[in-house]
Amino acid sequence: MAELDDIIHQPLRLKIMAALNALPVSAGLEFSRLKKLTGATDGNLGAHIETLAKAGYVSVDKAFVGKKPQTTVTATAAGRGAFARHVATLQEIIAGKQV
């Protein structure tokens, strides 16, 4: 029986992973874009991205575009796999295969 992924299951982390997973493989989202899409605050989003990064589900790249710092978050292969399993488990719960 598949288990829900505790790291992904948290609502904001679920949104972050869903957003990143909707992109082509190796494509990422800028922090500001992710903030707008998820409706999170800077601090909250940063903390949850760190949790996902520690789990190896996302990679965080920091660079300077001109004089502006830019943080890009990308789902890793492990993150995409974990997200797919998490969604499959949710679907199983709805189908009544798990209680």
Binding site: A18, A19, L37, V87, L90, Q91, I93
Partner: peptide, 19 residues
């Protein structure tokens, strides 16, 4: 439960549409 699972999937659909 299935209600919470449906809500989570709806959240995913919503964010995918936004992306």
């Amino acid at each position: 439960d299935s209600k919470e699972a449906s809500a989570a999937l709806a959240d995913i659909d919503d964010i995918v549409q936004r992306v």
